[in-house]
Each structure stands twice: as structure tokens, then as C-alpha cells.
Design a binder for these strands. Sequence first.
DNA 1: CTTGACCTTCCCCTGCACTGGAAGGTCCAG
DNA 2: CTGGACCTTCCAGTGCAGGGGAAGGTCAAG
Lengths: 129, 129
Amino acid sequence: MRIGELAERAGTTSKTLRFYEEQGLLPPADRTPSGYRDYAPDAVARIDFVHRGQAAGLTLAQIRQILDIRDSGHAPCEHVRDLLDARLAEIEQQIAQLTALHGTIADLRHDAAHPDPVTCSPDQVCRYL
Amino acid sequence: MRIGELAERAGTTSKTLRFYEEQGLLPPADRTPSGYRDYAPDAVARIDFVHRGQAAGLTLAQIRQILDIRDSGHAPCEHVRDLLDARLAEIEQQIAQLTALHGTIADLRHDAAHPDPVTCSPDQVCRYL
DNA sequence: CTTGACCTTCCCCTGCACTGGAAGGTCCAG
DNA sequence: CTGGACCTTCCAGTGCAGGGGAAGGTCAAG
């Protein structure tokens, strides 16, 4: 299977697959005599795994770590659990920050509910911010 | 006041102030005969405003829009309200997405609670993802 | 007169995950 | 044998908000 077909089957682009290979997410592909990349059908599963990792909010570098562990013949279970735990903590922190920011902005927006340019002194940029 | 002093007073760096000027957030500074930037004391307030805008999650481009309106002699109230409304909507959407993602990852993590490499078939990367 | 702190412009680098495009090679149908 | 679809490599850019560092000018203290 050539790169275009693989891309379509995996729901991505040729460009992205070359990028993944360059980043070490995909092993260097076999080549046809003329130099075209030639993929086995199971390459789709590996790309799907990358996509699932992305859906879980992992970076390509993290997904690559998992892949490297698997490729070295080990089970990446523990590492995956650690990554998931770290992601959960990150997300919780992000939600907390966004919630706080939402409160702050909602307050500002409340003050700005009744536009009154007259009370805006020209020497400040905006009294609502 | 020279750029280093302004930077310190405003809690930032000279580098950043030059960058802000380049981006149109600060007007081109006056220069001393030798070419040094020379700021009036009220420059601090403008940088503070930029920082407040950033604290509200606005991009420099958005803050610049507000500044441009103000500099053109108008009151930016309405524009600020629109930006705050847009930010609130964005934040709500981000929180919703993160909450959904948290649920998904928590489920994955739950499945992965009891590591059992034996049940990991080597032809899949990781049964937890 | 020199040292050191400060300033100037200039260009490149960071992280993340790609995307665009140029120049050229390959393959297959008509 | 030609056209078009596909492939190759390589270089460069995207958005965001700066940071790093070079090469050189300026200023005040000692």
C-alpha cells in the first residue's frame, strides 16, 4: 500500500504520515524499487493508536514514548497509567484555572453591562479592564 | 525614563517592550539624542493595561484593537464587551471539552487500574488506549 | 581612560503539529 | 508518447508571545 492509500484509510494525509515517520512515530517504511514508501496493512492500526492517544490529549512525544516501549518488546501499561494520571491532573488544573478566569471575566462583563462612555475618562484605556 | 527602568516598573523586560512597540501595542517611543528610547511615566499604565488584558485571556492582537480604538479618540466600551462575551463563550466551551476529556481519560485510567501485561496482546500497542 | 551597565538593531530560536509549495521522478491509461 | 495522478526530498511558514545572543554605540563612576 502506498502512502496516499494509507493516509486515506487512516483518515489523515500523506504529508502527516511522512511527518510522523520523521518524528519516529512510524518506523521507516519499506520502499518499492522506485523509492515509493510501501506499507503493510497493519500500519493503519498504528496510526489509529496515534489518533487515540491524541484524542486522550497526549502529545506526539508522549505517544512516541509508548510506542517505543512497545517496540522494544515491553508492555507500556505502567507508563500509560502514569501518562493518564498526569493528564488527569493537568486537565483538572486547567479546568480550575479556566473556572477562575471565567469568574473574573464575568465580573468585568457585569460591570460593563451598561455602557456609559461618559464616565470613561480619556486618560485610562478602559475602565472595565 | 529609559526602557530598562520602564520594564522594571511595569514588571516586564526591555525585550518585551520592544516587541510590544513592534506589534503596535506601544506607540513608537521618543528618542534621546543618542537614540535611546525615552518614555513618559504614563507608559507604565499602558503596559499595565496590556497585562490586565492578558490576565483576562485576551490575545495581544485583541488588546491592540482596544488600544487602537482608544487611541483614535473613541471609547472602546462596546468592543470590550464583545471581546469579553466572546472570551466567556470560548472559556465555557473549553471547560466543556476538558470536562468531557477528563471523563474519557478517567474511564481509560479506570480500566488500566490493574496492570496485567499478560492480557496485552503484542499485536496491539496498548489495550488501555 | 577604562570598566561595566545599559542601550541599539539584527536575525534566529522556542514548542506543537502540522501545511504549502517547488523541483523533480514514476506509473498507468489512452 | 503524452497527460495526469501519484510519489520523492527539501525548504519554509503557520500562530502565539516572546527569548537568546551577536555586534556595536553610550553614559556615568572611578
